[in-house]
Design a protein around this nucleic acid. Structure first.
Ligand SMILES: [Mn+2]
Ligand SMILES: [Mn+2]
Ligand SMILES: [Zn+2]
Ligand SMILES: [Zn+2]
Lengths: 126, 126
DNA sequence: TATTTTACTGCAACAAAGTTGCGTTAAGCT
DNA sequence: AGCTTAACGCAACTTTGTTGCAGTAAAATA
């Protein structure tokens, strides 16, 4: 189950997540890998890696899809529930290593929460 | 500034938000109004109403745009910051009238938060 | 190492959401 | 009623993402 074959394409794509802690836009990955693989392949590999628990995805405030490395997830245990932050200045998106406290609201049984925060990162707030 | 002319189209669109507390998908509005106005018109009216502080928008977990009525906003004061909830069963999306407690995270100055909650609504959890 | 199997990839065509330009219509003011 | 211009319809376009199918290559088997 999952990524059964570690092809050149899979290795190449994974290598782009290595040097950074930031999340990466799916669209940016496609642009960056244009010479090396087809966009269909990029989307398919992202799908598989996410099912494997190697990366996770979320949607930004503009509806675009972001991907970032997981820490300690597997295919049957995706426990990477944390807020994501975007800097309004440098536009970088990062995973915040803090717990989300799921609110208790009457008449609603809340099972999951997606939190997208916006503000200024340390480097950009001079 | 804002909606200067209350046309038939504007009145009709606003009337769809009246009978419900739920949010409405932009795409659903377009489908529902297909016979009465063009989709371009729908998008343009939604834009204007949002700038006026009459409705507010947010993005669901699938990247689609939702709109809901504002309560007590104006064009220069959009203070409708609350979580949104989607029921996994009936798919309805509602505005939750609770305050979002913006987390304090070192190295990040958080200015805004979008919280999208998922679970079961009262009607659907038998 | 040669053969075989099938997971993976490329391509082209498609789908859905949303935007833009421009000519036409109608809201609402005099 | 006539005038001005905000608002509208339409078609064409952009962007993101998906699908079907034929061809390729990773890796298992012999
Ligand atoms: Mn993350
Ligand atoms: Mn709301
Ligand atoms: Zn920054
Ligand atoms: Zn429900």
């Amino acid at each position: 189950m999952g990524i059964t074959r570690k092809t050149k394409a899979v290795k190449k794509l994974l290598s782009l997540f290595e040097p950074t802690v930031s999340a990466i836009l799916a669209v940016d990955l496609i642009a960056q890998l244009k010479e090396e693989m087809n966009k269909t392949t990029v989307y398919r590999i992202l799908d598989r890696l996410e099912n494997e628990g190697i990366i996770h995805s979320f949607v930004g405030s503009d509806g675009l899809k972001w991907y970032a490395k997981c820490t300690g997830c597997s295919s049957n245990n995706h426990n990477d529930i944390h807020p994501h932050f975007q800097c309004t200045n440098c536009k970088k998106v990062t995973c915040l290593p803090v717990e989300i406290k799921i609110p208790i609201v009457e008449n609603y049984t809340i099972e999951n929460a997606a939190v997208f925060l916006v503000g200024k990162c340390n480097e950009c707030s001079s």
